[in-house]
Computed example of a mutant assay.
Amino acid sequence: MSTDPLAERYGRSARGADPSGRRPLTTGARVAIGAALAAGVLVAAWFAWSDAQRNPVEYQEIGFSIESAEQVTVTFDVMMPPGGAAVCTVKALAPNYAEVGSLDVRVAPSDTGSQRLTAEVRTTSEATTGVVDNCRPADTP
Rank of each mutant, 00 (worst) to 15 (best):
S2C: 15
D4C: 15
D4S: 15
P5E: 11
L6Q: 13
L6E: 12
S13R: 05
R15V: 08
R15E: 05
A17N: 07
D18K: 13
D18F: 10
D18N: 12
P19Q: 06
L25M: 05
T26C: 06
T26Q: 04
T26A: 08
T27W: 13
T27I: 08
G28E: 00
A29S: 09
A29E: 10
R30D: 15
V31A: 10
A32E: 14
A32H: 09
I33P: 10
A35P: 03
A35Q: 08
A35G: 06
A36D: 09
A39T: 15
A39H: 15
V43D: 08
A44L: 07
A45E: 08
W46Q: 11
A48P: 01
D51M: 08
Q53Y: 09
I66A: 00
E67K: 03
E67M: 07
S68P: 13
S68I: 04
A69W: 03
Q71A: 14
D77W: 04
M79K: 06
M79F: 05
M79Y: 00
P81S: 03
P82G: 03
G84H: 00
A85I: 07
V87R: 02
C88P: 03
P95W: 08
Y97F: 03
A98S: 01
G101Y: 11
S102H: 13
L103H: 05
V105H: 12
V105R: 14
R116T: 04
T118W: 00
E120C: 05
V121Y: 02
R122V: 10
T124S: 00
T124N: 06
S125I: 11
S125L: 14
E126R: 11
A127T: 08
T129I: 02
T129M: 07
T129H: 07
G130S: 06
V131G: 04
N134E: 05
A138G: 11
A138R: 15
T140P: 02
T140R: 05
